[in-house]
């Protein structure tokens, strides 16, 4: 009995260490890259935020711009709530990502035209809206009906993909901080999304970035906005709960 108790206490102590602590990709950046990210004028990812802001003032089919309902600077949107996405929709019975919520507003509150999930406009609007929550800790609630999506996303993150046959967690959980192909591996967190990639000079949201890793594993990517990527996003955002939002982060 005592032995079991001792084992139990030991496991309680060790479990948090084994689970590992969430670290932002920022922690692995060079000082120059950090400086670039922190520069309110020089950060090249801000171009996407500016584009999003311009779209925020553009009227929809019913003549209303986003700003008409959410404030000139989006100040009527609650940053704490932005940090909770994806959230569960009881009506649609599925998790809704931040980009999906914006698409809904375009269709339901502006009368269209529909916003393609993979379009640069959708990425830009997401950048603008998520930038409003800069510095707010990610806080995804994965209780209730979200638990199944969290579990599905975790399963996907632990699946070996493609001809290269490696799972996401094998690089991003086991080897963060080490060098892969001359780059420093990070935990593959999403708190900086959409991010500006130094390697490509392009902005990428969570789904685009997963596609890029799947492609490098010689696997067939899923469609941007697909149920698989939404489950990935539920798991990956929740995995980074507590990390501060850095949109638009600078990454490799």
């Amino acid at each position: 009995m005592n032995r079991y108790l001792a084992f139990f206490v030991l496991m309680l102590l060790v479990a948090p260490l084994m689970a590992g602590q969430a670290r932002s990709g920022y922690a692995y950046l060079t000082p120059e890259a950090r400086e670039l990210q922190d520069d309110d004028f020089g950060n090249p990812g801000l171009a996407s935020v500016d584009e999003g802001q311009a779209l925020f003032y553009q009227p929809g089919a019913n003549g209303k711009p986003c700003a008409a309902c959410h404030g000139d600077q989006g100040e009527k949107l609650d940053p704490e709530r932005i940090a909770r996405y994806p959230v569960y929709s009881e009506r649609l019975r599925k998790p809704i990502t931040l980009r999906e919520k914006i698409r809904q507003c375009r269709s339901d509150k502006q009368g269209g035209p529909a916003l393609d999930y993979a379009s640069p406009d959708a990425v830009a609007l997401e950048s603008f809206v998520r930038r409003l929550a800069l510095g707010v800790p990610v806080a995804v609630d994965v209780s209730g009906p979200m638990a199944a999506h969290y579990a599905a996303g975790k399963q996907l993150f632990h699946t070996r993909w493609g001809q290269v046959d490696i799972a996401c967690h094998q690089c991003h959980d086991y080897h963060a901080g080490k060098h892969f192909r001359g780059q420093i591996l990070t935990q593959g967190q999403t708190n900086g999304m959409p991010v500006y990639r130094l390697a490509t000079g392009e902005i990428a949201g969570t789904h685009e970035r997963i596609s890029q890793c799947l492609t490098s594993l010689r696997a067939e990517p899923f469609a941007i906005g697909s149920p698989e990527y939404i489950d990935f996003e539920v798991y990956m955002n929740a995995r980074g709960n507590g990390l501060k939002i850095e949109t638009p982060a600078i990454r490799y």
Partner: peptide, 20 residues
């Protein structure tokens, strides 16, 4: 292991891109 299996049986691989 994180090391790719460079000669694993192709049927065991998952969602390989068409070209490969």
């Amino acid at each position: 292991t994180v090391m790719p299996g460079f000669y694993r049986r192709p049927e065991k691989l998952h969602r390989v891109a068409k070209a490969y």
